[in-house]
């Protein structure tokens, strides 16, 4: 089973994300800010990180920079999931090594589509109209 680290300072968002990701057969680990996420990655690198941008202590962007410098930190697929929906933020995230980007609000379809996009999920059976 693949693991996904959910990093968000809102416990409500973490709970929603957990439900969606468990539905997609991921084991979910939670962190409430970037610093706690770094600690979690030192214990074990996850396969995926669903990452909020604005958080206290260490924000998502700082975490991403830190992660990509860690040994094995190039492995996890990082999918931002944030209300920061401006093209400038998206470009910064991609340049810093993010793999995908979700603009909140999000739902299961969007998470599944983005996770498929970066190869974390097998393709669905094609949808019927």
């Amino acid at each position: 089973m693949k693991t996904c680290l959910v990093v968000d300072d809102s416990s409500v968002v973490r709970k929603i994300a957990r439900r969606i990701l468990e539905g997609l057969a991921f084991t979910v680990i939670e962190a409430e800010d970037g610093a706690k996420a770094v600690e979690a990655c030192k214990v074990a690198m996850p396969d995926a990180v669903l990452l909020d941008w604005n958080m206290p202590v260490m924000d998502g962007f700082e975490f991403l920079i830190e992660l990509r410098r860690m040994p094995g930190g190039d492995v996890p697929k990082v999918v931002f999931c944030t209300t920061e929906n401006g093209i400038d933020h998206i470009s910064r995230a991609l340049n810093a090594g993010a793999n995908e980007y979700i603009m909140k609000p999000f739902d299961k379809d969007i998470v599944a589509a983005k996770f498929q996009e970066v190869g974390l999920l097998a393709l669905d059976v094609p949808t019927e109209a």
């Binding site: 929906n85 093209i87 998206i90 991609l94 999000f106 379809d109 969007i110 589509a113 983005k114």
Partner: peptide, 14 residues
């Protein structure tokens, strides 16, 4: 925003 997040890779959006 909802429509561009279904199936469209973020690099293509940008």
């Amino acid at each position: 925003q909802f429509e561009v997040q279904r199936g469209l890779p973020i690099q293509m959006l940008v």
